[in-house]
Computed example of a mutant assay.
Amino acid sequence: MADIEQDPSNFLFLETMFLDIIDNVRETDSTGMGSSFICARKTYILKNNTKLFVTEHYTKEGKIDHFYYDWVTNEKASRGILSFHSESHEEKAYRTSTEPFHIHTHEDTKLSNVSRLPNYNFHDLFSVLEYIRLFIYANQVLSQ
């Protein structure tokens, strides 16, 4: 994995800043495992009945090595909405123009650069939560 030289997320700050969209916080991610010294894991249950699984892997220096922010439906068998990832792929066929940053769409069933979108802007948990907030509010306006 490629070290992206980014500080870990400040979860307390984020959970305060996004109180308007976060309904509940679980201290595990999609694996059901909790955090450790080398990996932070959370699940945000959002007020629009979706979830955000958060996994940040850290270097021994305490920086983010790579992350997985997976936005899914809140059904028993969660379906992916969008996944914001930062793991690098060695094989060129799987790379995007913004490697290691990329986005998986909900239709990802195979690994390829076609099923992975470039990610120019969403490189941290704050920006992902901000995007989700805008989506939620825009969806509320459109559904009125």
Rank of each mutant, 00 (worst) to 15 (best):
G62C: 07
H102W: 03
T55F: 00
K60V: 01
T96M: 08
E61V: 06
R79C: 08
E75A: 11
E87L: 11
Y68L: 08
A93D: 06
G80D: 02
T96S: 09
T55C: 12
I103M: 07
E61W: 07
K51W: 02
K110Q: 11
H106F: 12
H66Q: 08
V54W: 01
K60G: 00
L46M: 10
L82M: 13
R79Y: 14
A77N: 13
E61N: 14
H102V: 00
G80N: 10
G62E: 08
E87C: 08
S88Y: 05
E87G: 03
E56H: 01
Y69D: 07
I64K: 07
Y68T: 11
W71A: 11
F84S: 03
H106I: 06
T96A: 06
I81D: 03
A77H: 13
E87R: 09
F67Q: 01
K63W: 05
I103Q: 13
D65H: 14
H85E: 15
H104K: 05
T98I: 03
H102N: 09
R79P: 00
W71S: 05
Y69R: 06
R95P: 01
T59M: 12
H104Y: 03
E61K: 15
H66V: 02
R95L: 05
L111Q: 15
E61S: 15
F67R: 03
K110E: 08
H57R: 14
T73F: 05
L52D: 01
T96Q: 11
Y58G: 02
T73Y: 12
L52R: 04
K60Q: 09
T105I: 04
H106D: 14
T98G: 05
I64R: 12
F53I: 03
K92I: 08
L52H: 06
K76D: 13
R95M: 13
T105M: 07
T55S: 13
F84P: 00
E99A: 04
F84Q: 04
S86A: 04
H102F: 01
T55I: 02
E75V: 12
Y94N: 14
Y58P: 01
H89N: 11
F53Y: 13
D70A: 02
S78L: 06
E56A: 04
A93N: 09
I81S: 01
L46C: 05
I45A: 11
E75K: 10
E90R: 14
T55L: 11
T98D: 07
S86F: 02
S86H: 06
F101W: 04
K110T: 13
L46A: 05
L52A: 00
E91F: 10
T109D: 08
T50P: 01
K47C: 05
T96N: 07
D70T: 02
V72T: 14
R79Q: 14
K60R: 09
K110I: 05
I103R: 13
S78V: 09
Y44Q: 06
T50Q: 06
S88M: 09
K47H: 07
V72N: 06
E87S: 13
L46H: 10
